[in-house]
Amino acid sequence: MIEEIITSGRMNHEIDPQLHIWGWEIPLYLFLGGLVAGILILSGVFYILGREERYPFTIKILPIVTPLLLSIGLFALFLDLSHKLYFWRLYTIIRWNSPMSWGAWTLMAIFPLSILWSVTWLEDLKPQWFNNYKWLHSSLDLLRKYRQKLAMIMVFFSLILGMYTGILLSAFNARPFWNTAILGPLFLVSGLSGAAALVVLFSKETREKKIFGRIDLLLITIEIFLLIHLFMGFLSGTQVHIEAAKMFLGGPYTTFFWVFIMGFGLVFPGILEFMELRKFKVPTAIPAILVLIGGLLLRIIIVDAGQASRWLY
């Protein structure tokens, strides 16, 4: 038997005995960022496809919450900074090597876009709110003329937002569990799935609910596939990646991940939505709520597990 004992004389808070720099703020932001990206992509894409009358909730109503969700997410992000008063330094430079930098700039674009997009719809829904503001009314009219272009730009930046929340983590070579390119697409699909679940949950149109239930089923299937792919990639990787996968295959994260995320967050709502497709009576709110909780838990566990995984030397 060969024993290997490493005694370190270092005890820096937040690094030792294990990295724990990011608490609840980052996963919450990643979840809300992904959800906003998902909502804006669905809204923009179906608007471009001309489905305004068929999916009114998705296109017109749901986007109205995005500025609020983004604000909460950004506030969480701000809380996480340890040198808060210097946050503006983010906007003094663009660094292409740093996903956090282009993420910050993407937010700078998507935040005003989400406000513009939702305000034009808000006026359609509640014109009486805008009666006293003539100048606003005329500028919104101008904006409405370019809605198609606005939708395209918004979808483009939303795609970057949805992907970047994953790439932010996958760029960290030093944490093997994060160091996989799958995280980008995984977080994007998970964000879209959460957005579809919100439509199922809050839309009043039966047809819209049904279609988005199906879309969600497709997205859940892709997400399960991506997660399996993630572990296949790790298991055929280097020793550190195998160790990272083992945390979920018998290690400390096993039960939490396979029961609450894979089970109650993906497979179970997937089965329920499939049964609904087969004309069984299923309360649609259940799978939708489970998908949303699963999406948040997925971020929490990935942020946590990444910090627990490391190079061995």
């Binding site: 990295l19 960290f172 030093a174 990444g306």
Partner: peptide, 16 residues
Amino acid sequence: NACIGCKACIASCPYD
């Protein structure tokens, strides 16, 4: 004076 305390560098360092 340029550090915002985002901790990305801490996460990225394999030597901690």
